[in-house]
Computed example of a mutant assay.
Amino acid sequence: MIDRIALVLVIIGGLNWGSIGIFGLDIVAALFGGSASGLSRLVYILVCLSAIWCITLFFREDRVERTARGNA
């Protein structure tokens, strides 16, 4: 469950960075009252923590892979 939440937040962060790069628009800042507002900063922090969490996905085996190898 945490993996999925983290992935959603990382996707939101990636889309936000894409909108900044392509359109010069920070969607999070636009929605929550500027990049310095408390709510925007909270979203940025959550996206950062999610990205750090997603790094762990590189070092874990997927349950599906383990099951497939067990049946092979």
Score class of each variant (00 low, 15 high):
59 F>N: 02
64 V>H: 06
71 N>E: 10
72 A>Y: 06
51 A>L: 14
19 S>L: 09
26 D>L: 13
62 D>V: 02
28 V>T: 14
66 R>W: 08
69 R>T: 05
67 T>Y: 13
35 S>P: 03
67 T>G: 03
45 I>Q: 01
62 D>E: 11
68 A>E: 12
21 G>Y: 13
12 I>Y: 07
37 S>D: 12
53 W>H: 05
26 D>P: 09
10 V>F: 08
42 L>E: 07
28 V>L: 14
35 S>I: 09
66 R>N: 07
44 Y>P: 05
61 E>T: 10
23 F>S: 15
70 G>M: 02
39 L>S: 15
41 R>N: 09
14 G>D: 09
50 S>F: 01
21 G>R: 14
40 S>R: 06
26 D>W: 14
43 V>Y: 02
14 G>K: 10
50 S>T: 01
54 C>E: 11
5 I>P: 00
1 M>R: 10
26 D>K: 12
51 A>S: 14
56 T>H: 02
3 D>M: 00
62 D>A: 09
30 A>V: 05
69 R>Y: 07
17 W>Q: 14
72 A>L: 11
24 G>K: 05
9 L>G: 00
42 L>V: 11
13 G>I: 05
10 V>M: 07
27 I>V: 15
40 S>C: 12
2 I>H: 02
4 R>Q: 10
28 V>P: 01
17 W>I: 12
25 L>S: 09
39 L>K: 14
71 N>S: 08
56 T>G: 04
71 N>R: 13
46 L>G: 00
11 I>A: 11
65 E>T: 10
13 G>M: 06
17 W>S: 11
43 V>A: 11
30 A>H: 06
21 G>I: 12
54 C>Y: 13
35 S>D: 10
24 G>E: 06
4 R>V: 06
50 S>R: 03
15 L>A: 05
47 V>T: 01
45 I>R: 01
30 A>Q: 13
42 L>D: 04
46 L>D: 02
43 V>T: 04
31 L>W: 10
37 S>L: 13
4 R>W: 04
44 Y>H: 10
58 F>N: 04
36 A>E: 14
31 L>H: 03
65 E>V: 10
69 R>F: 08
53 W>N: 00
28 V>G: 01
40 S>A: 15
71 N>Y: 09
49 L>V: 06
55 I>T: 11
61 E>N: 12
46 L>W: 08
62 D>Q: 04
42 L>T: 12
37 S>P: 03
2 I>M: 03
4 R>K: 10
15 L>S: 03
20 I>T: 02
69 R>D: 09
70 G>F: 05
11 I>P: 00
45 I>V: 07
68 A>S: 08
42 L>Q: 06
58 F>Q: 00
32 F>W: 10
71 N>A: 12
47 V>C: 03
66 R>F: 07
38 G>P: 11
23 F>M: 14
47 V>I: 15
24 G>Q: 04
41 R>A: 05
29 A>G: 14
31 L>C: 09
52 I>K: 00
68 A>R: 12
36 A>M: 13
27 I>G: 05
55 I>Q: 02
21 G>K: 15
16 N>M: 06
60 R>C: 06
59 F>Y: 11
35 S>T: 09
71 N>V: 11
49 L>R: 00
67 T>H: 08
12 I>W: 08
8 V>M: 09
35 S>N: 09
62 D>F: 04
48 C>L: 14
62 D>L: 04
69 R>P: 00
6 A>K: 03
11 I>V: 12
8 V>F: 07
65 E>P: 00
